[in-house]
Amino acid sequence: MSEITYVRGDATVPSVKGVKVIAHVCNDIGGWGKGFVVALSRRRPEPEAAYRAWHRGRATNDFGLGAAQFVRVEPYMWAANMVGQRGIRTGSKGVPVRYEAIDAALGRLAQKTTELGASVHMPRIGCGLAGGAWARVEPLITERLVRRGISVTVYDHGEGRS
Results as ranks from 00 to 15, higher is better:
Arg144Lys: 15
Ser41Arg: 11
Ala80Leu: 08
Pro47Cys: 09
Val19Thr: 14
Lys17Tyr: 02
Ile150His: 03
Leu106Phe: 14
Asp103Ala: 12
Arg136Gln: 14
Ala104Trp: 01
Arg72Asp: 00
Thr114Met: 13
Met122Arg: 11
Gly57Tyr: 02
Thr142Ala: 09
Ser41Asn: 13
His24Cys: 08
Thr5Asp: 10
Met1His: 07
Asp156Arg: 03
Arg56His: 09
Gly107Ile: 05
Ala68Trp: 05
Val120Lys: 09
His157Ser: 11
Ala50Val: 12
Gly117Asn: 06
Arg108Ser: 12
Leu106Trp: 08
Asn61Phe: 05
Ala49Phe: 08
Lys93Leu: 14
Val16Trp: 05
Gln85Tyr: 02
Val21Glu: 04
Glu48Val: 15
Ala49Met: 13
Asp10Asn: 14
Arg148His: 14
Gly31Phe: 15
Tyr76Met: 07
Glu143Ser: 15
Ala105Asp: 01
Ala105Lys: 02
Cys127Met: 06
Arg72Leu: 01
Pro47Asn: 10
Gly31Gln: 04
Gly107Pro: 06
Phe36Arg: 02
Cys26His: 04
Gly117Glu: 00
Gly33Asn: 11
Glu46Arg: 13
Asn61Trp: 04
Tyr6Thr: 10
Ile29Trp: 06
Val38Ser: 09
Ala104Glu: 13
Ala11Gly: 01
Lys112His: 07
Leu140Gly: 06
Val154Thr: 03
Pro123Ser: 01
Gly84Lys: 09
Gly9Ser: 07
Val146Pro: 06
Ala104His: 06
Leu40Asn: 07
Ala105Pro: 09
Arg72Ser: 00
Glu48Ala: 15
Gly57Ser: 14
Arg8Ala: 06
Glu115Met: 11
Gly158Thr: 00
Ser41Trp: 05
His121Phe: 13
Gly87Asp: 04
Arg148Asp: 07
Gly94Arg: 05
Arg86Phe: 10
Glu138His: 12
Leu145Ala: 10
Gly160Cys: 02
Glu48Gln: 15
Val152Tyr: 06
Val97Pro: 05
Met82Trp: 05
Pro45Asn: 11
Pro14Phe: 09
Arg108Lys: 15
Cys26Arg: 04
Val16Gln: 04
Leu129His: 09
Pro45Met: 05
Val71Gly: 02
Gly128His: 00
Thr113Phe: 03
Arg124Leu: 03
Ala11Tyr: 14
Ala50Thr: 12
His55Glu: 08
Gln111Thr: 14
Ser162Thr: 03
Ala68His: 07
Gly126Leu: 01
Met82Asn: 03
Arg161Trp: 04
Arg144Met: 02
Ile29Cys: 12
Ala105Arg: 01
Gly57Glu: 15
Asp103Cys: 05
Pro75Gly: 08
Met122Thr: 13
Glu138Ser: 10
Gly94Trp: 03
Arg147Asp: 08
Ala67Thr: 01
Ser92Ile: 05
Gly132Trp: 01
Arg52Cys: 13
Trp32Ile: 12
Glu159Pro: 12
